[in-house]
Design a protein around this nucleic acid. Structure first.
Ligand SMILES: [Mn+2]
Ligand SMILES: [Mn+2]
Ligand SMILES: [Zn+2]
Ligand SMILES: [Zn+2]
Lengths: 139, 139
DNA sequence: TCCTACATTGGACTCAATCCAAGTCAATTT
DNA sequence: AAATTGACTTGGATTGAGTCCAATGTAGGA
């Protein structure tokens, strides 16, 4: 049963078939689907669901903090249900595979005061890039 | 005289008025202009320059490694002539101001082997987010 | 069961970027 | 200096991701 769905229900959401399938599609670890991928999988369960609703639902999940948006390239945004454990991303430059990673240390502490230009720094986002073992094998 | 322009000339580029003004617009530190901003400034010097040429020229500078593309948000890409000293970015979430920063330490060393999933990691990109002093003052 | 505020829908629209065929021109050759 | 030619430039059409909207449908409370 959907962990994400349970949390959303608990927030007093009006539950609809559309929202249910979107939440169900986002189950799992290392899930980073585009809106169109979410839509394609949702359609398998609920053929009449529209792209607009998928966008609406994902957008609401994001503003509720239950899903995060990930932009590792300039293509479509990806939607990540792993919102409750802060993490960064490791991306394969060949096939686009994305893994959640948890670096040791705090990258924010690595920014010296004299490199802050008077900014109040509140967040840091780290993207590691490389080649995944699968692509390395099929070199 | 343009440092960037000198490097491009040295690579055997056919020199045109259009390429010259694009290179000149990209002079300076902490420069992170969008293609449209580059175009607007280029038009002041060469009124008939087209958007397509600005895109072409920026794209070539990028593939020559003389300019880097920066995507700190989902809006237009930004073009950064500071390609020869690796750096990261500090971004104001309110006004979009971008500063070049050089964190101490090597963020790539912060990714433990058991968090690499067999990837060959070749690059890391860090974006610090916060509020700039200007925006903090006009809170 | 009825009501209505909220949710869904398809299509039009935006924005950044790319593509293209036709025209232009920088640099080499004669 | 003129001719040549392949690279460069141009405006407009096209694409891709996402947003907006007015009309329609419906979940959940009364
Ligand atoms: Mn993730
Ligand atoms: Mn920069
Ligand atoms: Zn791969
Ligand atoms: Zn600011």
């Amino acid at each position: 049963m959907s962990d994400l769905l349970e949390r959303l229900r608990g927030r007093g959401w009006r539950m609809t078939a559309q929202r249910r399938v979107v939440a169900e599609v986002l189950e799992g670890d290392h899930v980073h689907l585009t809106a169109d991928e979410v839509h394609a999988r949702a359609v398998e369960r609920l053929p009449e669901i529209s792209r607009a609703t998928v966008y609406n639902t994902l957008g609401e999940m994001v503003s509720l903090g239950e899903v995060i948006e990930v932009s590792t390239d300039r293509r479509a945004k990806r939607y990540d249900p792993n919102a409750h454990r802060p993490h960064h991303h490791l991306v394969c430059g060949r096939c686009g595979a994305i893994r959640d990673v948890h670096p040791s240390g705090n990258p924010m502490a690595d920014l010296p005061d004299d490199e802050r230009f008077g900014f109040t720094v509140s967040d840091v986002e780290v993207t590691y890039r490389g080649i995944c073992p699968n692509c390395a094998a099929t070199a």
